[in-house]
Design a protein around this nucleic acid. Structure first.
Lengths: 159, 159
DNA sequence: CCCTTTTAGGTAGTATGCACACTATTTGTA
DNA sequence: TACAAATAGTGTGCATACTACCTAAAAGGG
């Protein structure tokens, strides 16, 4: 039981290493250069157009500082724009560029295919079980993380 | 299916955030200042005394550069020592200091208790299932990560 | 024994992920 | 309305996690 390799914490760390590695390889093989974190930002922005940095951070559970750096790099790649909001001059409204939308269209099916590759060691049934359990753990532990996820409903209430 | 929150990759990232957060909080509440990564290094070093950086990195699946930084910080805290090996002047033999052994003794039971807290959303049965599935994923994807785990047997063969 | 290859460790640079502190703004309240 | 509290974003610094490249040393083959 004192074997680190069997501790949930260490196993989760290993899964994260494997997951990010497979993601990078797959996306790069498709001719793109995006991290998993950058893809999540683009994809969420596409689904909720016109949100600002704080709302985006809440939706994908990123720290405020982290999201700033991620958006810096996406902006430098020309995949999105940041505009000072009219209603709140503190906020920056985000928008995918033409290129950003194009990249997202090309990469999304690749990313979806990669999800099965991440769980390559499991049968389809086991994959479903794993995802269900992981979601349960994620939901139960949400408040314990430094950057809890804020659902759309919570976000929209304040609009 | 295109919902990011249900993708294994994103779920794993969330679990990692939650896991490291719970670890830090728990260890700090016990009066210590160790990251999960640093604990894994100390614990593995205690189990395999006298190994060098490369072997330690292999056992816990750390990148060569990463382990260097981790050991820098553990050495700065006075928890271990690095000595140039007699048999191989390239290698640095690692050894826990008195203080390092003491800290490890105090922290280990805390860390073990925290493992259940990480999976707080699951029943005991579900926890066992999750760990078994995670281990399967980890084993199957080992080669896919940048820093694959090298088992003790593999390591000892070259001694 | 020479010489190629491999290995151990390092430097420098990039990308998350966080804490802490700060400015600018908005919101809530007395 | 004046003022405290909350919020959006940023700067700085630290800890993983990696790539690419480098040096020193060991191992291997001819």
């Amino acid at each position: 039981m004192s074997d680190i390799a069997l501790m949930p914490g260490h196993l989760i760390r290993r899964l994260h290493q494997i997951s990010t590695s497979i993601f990078l390889d797959g996306v790069r093989a498709a001719g793109h250069d995006l991290t998993a974190v950058q893809f999540a930002a683009l994809s969420t922005l596409s689904r909720y157009p016109g949100i600002d940095q704080a709302k985006l951070a809440g939706l994908i559970a990123y720290d405020r500082v982290t999201i700033g750096g991620v958006l810096d790099r996406l902006e430098a790649k020309g995949l999105l724009t940041r505009t000072v909001s009219d209603r709140d001059r503190r906020a920056r409204v985000l928008a995918l560029s033409e290129n950003g939308q194009q990249v997202l269209r090309e990469v999304t099916p690749v990313v979806q295919a990669l999800q099965d590759e991440i769980l390559a060691g499991l049968s389809p049934d086991e994959r479903a079980t794993f995802v269900a359990l992981a979601e349960k753990v994620s939901r139960a532990g949400n408040r314990r993380s430094r950057a809890p996820m804020v659902s759309v409903d919570d976000t929209l209430q304040r609009n």
